[in-house]
Design a protein around this nucleic acid. Structure first.
Length: 580
RNA sequence: GCGCCCGUAGCUCAGUGGAUAGAGCGUCAGGUUGCGGACCUGAAGGUCGUGGGUUCGAGUCCCGCCGGGCGCGCCA
């Protein structure tokens, strides 16, 4: 019971191994210093953290470290000597029954190969049964409040397939950061201020009145729907107050479109905590305040009647205009971005992340420059750029333009290939990797998507648990006093041990995903876990009335696998079906 | 022209300076008297775009070149 008493995240096994090796290194370093020749002083301790990794070849053990190879040069000692000295100081289960390490071997040219104790697998399995909902969550070394802004497409038309990557990338990042112990808020910024809103309104009115569309008007089917649904009162009120009806209709249409976008995103499993409009940003004075702060910092100047921010002072390749010389000194879009930075930091975030398409990479330097001039740490403003997705149908690139209405909406795409398959597709690729998305191919292959392989493993486990229940059997409770012995009994044999070794990796996978801000490690892991389960299923009969103890023990392991698969899928926002 | 990203198996993609470069799909050959065959086992398939350099060690870091994408507005 003591092992499972503390709720919430606990360190990954890898973290505990790392701590053990670090402790051994501290002792080993003293040995090495004591035996040092008079050749020179012992170097200062290296700051480099001791990295523990999963070896490429499983026969080497559960974990490996190249620490001795890295330290050989600064300490001017043979890697093998360092490795042997460290290994001699590691507490293993041979000397300390609580150690997660069964053995440490030294292999040329200086690797430490570490084998996990069976007891560590059993303890981890118990912990999963005790706290299934938080299994896989880890505690951040420095928990932060993080704002992640993504999608932020202008509400002048429904989301199209080009918005898919940003939506999924942002959502996945938020899920991962939250699981890694951070407080995450999801934000959508939209422009309800610019001329395109008026343009949308003009298009709606033109259709409504049967006139020709404006030259730069919007043409999509949705514009006709808007024209049909526009309440007459909107135009009547505009006429009464003397306002340009295009603005009034545009505001109405834009809000209508925005609500549709929100519904689409919710359908994808992408929830946003904050919807921030550009007009309120101006109205609340944030843009003016930001410009004043830049001016006070001495980082703006006048040129040809315009106000310019000296962003080159902070590494940008040219200075940027923030107030135009014409149109009543109207602020530029960039000025609004600066105001938005001030407003966001005023809410107390330690870190602000933007998910942008790579076509925005030119904006990174100027926004970071603004942050720095405003007195923020530029490293607390972070941009994640997603590479372009080329949508292809029949070998031809699909054109996408909201204005001409030539685009495939996100809703249409997901109607064809399904949310789970689409999520897996994007989650399993690095954000920086360019993708050719062949829509016909994706439809054809959606049945071959590995996501179903993983979901199938989950459903198969659910089926086993149902089968067990029919025979009056169930996984043992987490506080069953026999659990430790039962697990120890089965973890001696290969099918069970191989599965358990995959199960216990989840927290490490979450740590890695959060550190790299990439999710393809999770999809790869989920696939490997499913494979390990299918192999176990082949070799080990779970429900066997003739072997009640062994059945109970295996049910505990299977229940842990069930939870682990479900939590890995939850990190990806993908459903974990009980049947399929 | 300048800047950023990318180039790894037939295809789509992984690969925090370390051990024999991996996975899925596709191809080929096999597998079920038991809990879900949407499964399992095995095989074939690689000059890691290219040429140098750094390193005990390079797919990974640095430089040149080739090829592809994106960006270089007081636009939004």
């Amino acid at each position: 019971m003591h092992a499972t008493a503390s709720p919430g995240p606990s360190p990954s096994l890898r973290g505990r191994i790392q701590a053990a090796i670090e402790a051994a290194w501290t002792l080993a370093r003293a040995d090495l210093a004591a035996s040092a020749s008079a050749g020179g002083p012992t170097p200062e301790p290296q700051d480099a953290p001791i990295s523990i990794e999963r070896p490429a070849d499983a026969s080497f053990g559960d974990f490996a470290s190249n620490i001795a190879l890295r330290l050989a040069k600064p300490y001017r000692r043979a890697p093998l000597e360092i490795a042997r000295t460290i290994a001699a100081h590691v507490e293993t289960t041979a000397t300390d029954p609580n150690s997660p390490i069964a053995s440490v071997d030294v292999a040329p040219p200086g690797f430490l190969n570490i084998r996990l104790a069976d007891g560590a697998l059993a303890t981890a399995t118990q912990r999963i049964l005790a706290n299934p909902t938080t299994w896989g969550h880890v505690a951040a070394a420095f928990p932060e409040r993080i704002n992640v802004e993504f999608v932020s497409a202008n509400p002048t038309g429904p989301l199209h397939i080009g918005n898919a990557r940003g939506a999924f990338t942002g959502d996945l990042l938020c899920r991962v950061l939250a699981a890694a112990g951070h407080k995450v808020e999801r934000e959508y910024y939209f422009n309800d201020f610019g001329s395109q809103v008026k343009n949308l309104g003009a298009s709606v009115i033109a259709i409504r009145e049967g006139c020709e569309l404006p030259e730069d008007g919007y043409h999509g089917d949705y514009v006709y729907d808007l024209a049909r649904e526009l309440p007459a009162e909107v135009l009547a009120q505009a006429q009464e107050s003397g306002e340009d009806p295009s603005w009034a209709a545009g505001r109405w249409a834009s809000e209508r479109v925005r609500a549709g976008i929100e519904a689409s995103l919710e359908h994808l499993g992408c929830h946003f905590d904050v919807w921030r409009s550009e007009s309120t940003l101006h109205k609340d004075g944030w843009v003016v305040q930001a410009i004043d702060r830049l001016r006070a910092a001495g980082d703006v100047y006048q040129e040809d009647g315009a106000v310019v921010f000296r962003s080159t002072k902070f590494g940008d390749d040219k200075d940027r205009v923030i107030l135009r010389s014409t149109e009543d000194a109207a602020p530029t879009y960039f000025a609004a971005d600066i105001g938005y930075l001030v407003e966001k930091f005023s809410r107390g975030y330690e870190r602000i992340i933007f998910i942008w398409g790579e076509d925005h990479h030119g904006y990174v330097a100027r926004v970071k420059a603004a942050a720095q001039s405003l007195g923020f740490d530029r490293d607390h403003v972070q941009m994640i750029l997603t590479a372009w997705v080329r949508f292809v149908r029949d070998g031809k690139e699909v054109p996408m333009s909201k204005r001409t209405g030539e685009f495939i909406t996100l809703d249409e795409l997901l109607g064809e290939i399904g949310v789970d398959a689409a999520r897996w597709f994007f989650a399993s690729r690095a954000a920086s990797s360019g993708i050719d998305f062949d829509i016909e191919l994706a439809k054809k292959q959606s049945n071959e998507n590995p996501v179903y392989y993983v979901q199938y493993a989950h459903a198969r486990i659910a089926s086993i648990l149902r089968k067990a229940a029919e025979s009056g059997m169930a996984p043992p409770a987490a506080d069953d006093p026999r659990l430790a012995d039962l697990l120890a009994g089965i973890l001696q044999s290969a099918p069970e041990a191989l599965l358990a070794r995959q199960i216990v990796r989840l927290p490490e996978v979450v740590e890695d995903a959060a550190a790299s801000e990439e999710t393809h490690g999770i999809t790869a892991y989920a696939t490997e876990l499913a494979t390990a389960f299918h192999a176990f299923y082949r070799d080990a009969r779970v429900v066997d009335p003739d072997e009640p103890d062994r059945s109970t023990a295996r049910l505990a392991l299977v229940a842990a696998a069930h939870t682990t698969l479900a939590n890995a899928l939850a990190l990806l926002g993908i459903s974990a079906p009980e049947t399929m």
